[in-house]
Amino acid sequence: MSSSSAHLWGPVRRAENGPVRLAVDQLCEGAAGEPLLLVTGLGVNRLWVPDGLCRMLAAQGFAVARYDQRDGGESTHLPPTATGNPLSALFTKRGEAYTAEDMADDAVAVMDALGWRSAHLLGVSLGGAVAQRVAIRHPDRVRTLTSMAAVPGDTSGLRVMRYIRMRTLAAFARLRFPDTPDGAVSAGIAVARLLASPNRAFDERAAREAAERNADSGVHDRQAQSRQIGAQWHGPPISAITRPTLVLHGEDDPLIKPGAGRAIASRISDARLVLLPEVGHELPESAWGSIVTEIRGLADTARHLPPRPTS
């Protein structure tokens, strides 16, 4: 994954949700298009979404914005909690810092800061689960929902195990790097290797260049990841989602089984599932065209649907 080029993005703004301040910026290209908000994955900052993918989305008529989730990047980091291990936070002690509802409300706060009444959502990994919850909790703010490489947003605790490849999760949990810029680069390369499709040659040089451009300490911040992954959802099931939905999942995802994508699509009315060949838990350039085409098609379909009844 690549870092951002500063000239492509507008100035960083701050959205506020209570005491939490969220860093957000918008792609300069395509700013007059249909609003599309990117929701990032566990621990990582917003720069992990490749610029090339964002520019392709802009070329297809989208105004692209992205933000750092709480406990990620330049957004507010919460105080340490008793659970400092993502595995423990996922399966045992949960919800000590904030809720999944808080994280869903963060996305709406970002839309407010951008002046967007509604937006298309593209959430990847943990961001996919967050985007699903936004569609449940704030349906009038969501034009379409694209969930990629995610588990069902209403799944928690031991039920998550059916969707996770435990060997990869254990390997991820064993990664240890010093809290230095060099450590962040090494962690970025190791995570990229771990999450790449095993059916494509791993480009270590490209991974190193990307990690050096974006030395994101969030990839090995176990405390922050524990707080994010431990946020519990208390709302309705994902079957309550009524917004037009696309589910993308890499056929070779080494972390979250494609069965998770199938489960999401089967539980949301009229959702479309697309499995991406030779794609792992990642956003490789080889898949950008397919991703953009599917999101554009979803938006075009949604444009012709009757308006939602207001309560």
Rank of each mutant, 00 (worst) to 15 (best):
Pro258Val: 01
Thr155Arg: 13
Ile189Lys: 04
Ser4Gly: 15
Pro86Gln: 05
Leu27Ser: 12
Ser156Lys: 15
Gly157Cys: 05
Asp182Thr: 08
Leu305Ala: 02
Arg267Lys: 13
Pro309Cys: 02
Phe91Ile: 08
Ala107Ile: 04
Gln223Lys: 13
Arg208Ala: 10
Ala150Glu: 06
Val274Lys: 10
Gly250Asn: 02
Gly95Asn: 13
Leu255Val: 00
Gly41Ala: 06
Arg272Phe: 11
Val142Met: 09
Met56Arg: 11
Gly127Tyr: 03
Leu283Tyr: 11
Ser217Tyr: 14
Ile189Pro: 00
Glu212Ser: 08
Asp140Lys: 14
Asp221Tyr: 10
Trp116His: 01
Asp203Ser: 08
Ile229Glu: 07
Lys93Gly: 14
Leu37Glu: 04
Arg14Asp: 07
Trp116Glu: 00
Arg21Ala: 14
Ser197Trp: 01
Arg222Gly: 08
Ile256Phe: 05
Ala224Met: 10
Val151Ile: 15
Met56His: 11
Ala263Cys: 07
His249Met: 06
His281Phe: 05
Trp288Asn: 03
Ser311Asn: 10
Ala63Trp: 00
Ala23Arg: 07
Val110His: 02
Leu158His: 14
Glu29Phe: 12
Asp252Met: 02
Ala129Asp: 12
Val64Asp: 02
Gly259Val: 12
Ala89Asn: 04
Ala15His: 07
Gln225Cys: 08
Asp270Lys: 15
Ala173Glu: 14
Glu285Gly: 13
Gly73Asn: 01
Pro236Asn: 15
Ser118Ala: 07
His249Ala: 04
Leu126Ile: 06
Leu283Glu: 06
Arg55Ile: 04
Thr146Ala: 14
Asp102Leu: 13
Gly218Glu: 03
Leu305Glu: 01
Val247Ile: 06
Thr99His: 09
Val20Pro: 10
Gly259Leu: 09
Leu145Glu: 08
Gly128Cys: 08
Gly84His: 13
Arg21Val: 12
Ile295Gly: 04
Pro198Ser: 06
Pro139Tyr: 09
Gly84Pro: 13
Met166Gly: 05
Ala231Val: 08
Pro307Glu: 03
Arg205Pro: 11
Ser269Met: 14
Leu275Tyr: 13
Gly30Leu: 10
Arg14Thr: 10
Arg13Trp: 10
Leu47Gly: 09
Val110Lys: 01
Ser239Glu: 15
Ala119Ser: 07
Arg137Cys: 10
Arg14Leu: 14
Gly218Ile: 05
Thr40Pro: 13
Glu282Met: 11
Ile295Val: 10
Gln26Lys: 13
Ala149Gln: 15
Val130Glu: 04
Arg162Phe: 10
Glu34Arg: 14
Val49His: 06
Leu158Ser: 14
Gly259Asn: 12
Thr301Asn: 03
Ala260Gln: 05
Gly115Asp: 01
Val12Ile: 15
Pro50Val: 01
Ala299Phe: 00
Val49Phe: 11
His281Asp: 08
Ser125Asp: 01
Ala215Lys: 09
Gly84Arg: 14
Arg243Val: 15
Ala58Leu: 01
Ala97Gln: 11
Thr144Ile: 08
Pro139Cys: 09
Ala187Gly: 11
Leu38Ser: 03
His7Asp: 15
Tyr98Ile: 10
Gly235Gln: 05
Gly123Val: 02
Ala129Trp: 10
Ala100Trp: 12
